[in-house]
Design a protein around this nucleic acid. Structure first.
Lengths: 235, 235
DNA sequence: CGTGCGATTGAAGTCCCTCAAGACGTGTGG
DNA sequence: CCACACGTCTTGAGGGACTTCAATCGCACG
């Protein structure tokens, strides 16, 4: 239950899921996705939550008129599909940006399993609470930060998540396009490019296509401006 | 369990809570708040969820550097405080904009109560799922709508929630200031005023200080632009 | 009756968007 | 293997939407 740790790194809650321990209480099925394949689509019946065991995805909300809003980039340790609970159907798409290995947790069967595994109940609630906090931290970032600060904030978030999984925080490989990043941050792709170029020119990062090196994390924190303080607590 | 209804009006999930039925399984305490009083503050220990029985609040996320982001305006039937689950402490303030009557649901005791009241478990999960959907619909609105569309979208959301509670959708009494609305919509208060004035000039609404009349809801939907379609499904 | 906060309106400025062109990298077919 | 086509990324110039700064008005409060 390291979830209760307020100052834990990004996405601690979902990363704490021990899917294997569930096996005796809940029939879990595994799925493998290739780059570009959909985990689910908007409108599809909701019948399971998805735990990302490996890979990298992009989730989005799709409006009736076709407008799309990227809602996140789940990676290993994240729980996907919570926003469909109570809606009956998925409200957006989830697409693999990489080869993915997914564990399916049938819903609402997973709720029944909570009785057999008491800790699961709290973990599920905490995973959703963490997701709410992330959404709101993002709202704060979009509402208060400039374009360049948002991009820095985004990169820093990715770096922290990587570090939390045991990888280096000094090198990122962006699996998503500039358009995806822009959509996620409420910016146009040209603006994302410009911000990256400018951060590069300032020596904060080194960008080469989708490879990003971060020599000094503190400088990136500073570039994320006033947002630096929040995300470490709320994300 | 009308919660499963996909096309239900705004905030059906939380409104479906039957708090009284919980009494035998969970010790609930009632609190009364006067205008301006805090239900909780950022940093305070998290030990309960709050069900709004009457009144109108404003919730916000508070950053370490003091920046504040309004996250919502809970009213009767809403569940408040879910975003603290797993964090140990509240990440923002909740302040009464009106005389409020609140029912406190101790956490994590409420999780244990789920065993005695099976339906509660699903309802809790669905309330949080609905909150996630609302946050993301708002993200979509902020990312894709113009200032005037956002304000129209905001008013329409309030009108729908009132209607869902049995009140008229043609007359609103805004309990929050222009600054609060602006913060919520990622706009400056002057821009909010200008948008309201313009909607008034167009005859879509009639604004007088904090009183808003909506003669034709369809015209307001149209003014919310492309956002009209989404919110009815995702909000 | 004065004080103060909230709301409104105007004018100037800034940031990001829009439109446009070019460069880079990749995959495909000849 | 090369040529071509396509998508992605990059960079520039101009314009528009919102912000910023500033002044005034209105209402509630002491």
């Amino acid at each position: 239950m390291k979830l209760a740790d307020t100052v834990a790194p990004i996405r601690p809650a979902t990363a704490a899921f021990d899917v294997d321990a569930l096996a005796p209480h809940l029939p879990t099925t595994r799925r493998r996705l290739r780059t570009g394949q959909h985990l689910y689509r908007a409108g599809q019946a909701f019948h399971a939550l998805y735990f990302v065991h490996a890979g990298f995805l992009r989730t989005s909300l799709v409006a009736d008129d076709g407008r799309e809003q990227v809602t996140g980039f789940p990676m290993r340790g994240d729980l996907v599909g919570c926003d469909a609970i109570g809606a009956g159907a998925h409200i957006g798409d989830a697409i693999a940006l990489d080869t993915c290995e997914i564990v399916e947790l049938a819903y609402p069967a997973v709720l029944d399993a909570c009785r057999g595994v008491p800790a699961l109940h709290g973990m599920l609630a905490e995973a959703m609470g963490a997701e709410l906090r992330r959404d709101r931290a993002r709202l704060l970032a979009l509402a208060t930060l400039s374009a360049e600060q948002r991009v820095a904030w985004f990169l820093r978030g990715l770096a922290r998540r990587q570090r939390a999984l045991g990888y280096s925080a000094h090198h990122l490989c962006l699996r998503m396009s500039r358009v995806d990043i822009g959509n996620y941050l409420a910016l146009k792709h040209e603006t994302v490019t410009r911000a990256l170029s400018h951060l590069d020119a300032d020596g904060v990062i080194a960008v080469e296509r989708r490879e990003v090196r971060i020599p000094c994390v503190e400088r990136l924190d500073a570039a994320a401006g006033a947002g630096a303080a929040v995300a470490s607590r709320a994300a």
